[in-house]
Amino acid sequence: MKKKSVLELLLGEWNTKTIVAIALGAALFGVLMNYGGITVFTNVKLTTAFLVPVVVGALFGPIPAALAAGLGNVIADTIGGWGYWWDWSIGNAVLGLLVGCLPLYGADIAKGIFKTKHAIIYVVIAVVGNALAFGLITPIFTQLFYGGELVVTFLQANAATLSNIAVLVIGGLPVLYALAARNASAQNLTKK
C-alpha cells in the first residue's frame, strides 16, 4: 500500500464516516462535559470527555479530533445553557488536535497496532499538549475576549491541565489498548 503523506494523515480521510464520527464525537463530548465529570476548580472539571478526541483521533486523524473536541465544547455550552466559553473551546480543539495525532506516529488502531512505543509518545503528547493548550492558548484568548487577571487564568489552566492529564493517561491508555485489541480480533474470521 502507498504510504500516506503527513498532510493526508493530519487531515484524515474526509468521507461520510469521518463526518459522522466528528458529529458523534462532538455529541458525546458535549454530553460528558455536562454529566460525566466532577468540578475541581471554578469552571474546571475533571471530565471524561477527553477520551472522545483520543478515540476520534485514533480512528480518523487529528483534524477530526480537533473538530470533535472544539464543536463538542460548543455543544456542551449549548445544552448546558451556561453561556459560551469560546476561549476554552479553542483550547479544547488544540488539545484534541494534539492527542488525536496517533496516526502521525504510526499507531494504527483500526488495524489493531498500538505498541508500548506509541503509548509513551501518546503520554508525552498528552502532557505537553495540555500545557500548550491550557497553559498558553486558552489564557491568551481569555485575555483577548474577556480580560482578567493572568495569574488566575493560569491557575485555572493548571488545574485543568492536571485533571486532563489524569483523564488522558489513566483513562485514555486502557481505551486505546482495548480498541486496538478489539480491532485486531476482527480479522481472519472462520467458523469452528
Partner: peptide, 11 residues
C-alpha cells in the same frame, strides 16, 4: 453544519 445537526440528533 451537518455535523452540528447530526450531533444534536444523536445526543
Amino acid at each position: 453544519s451537518t455535523i452540528t445537526s447530526l450531533a444534536f440528533r444523536y445526543i
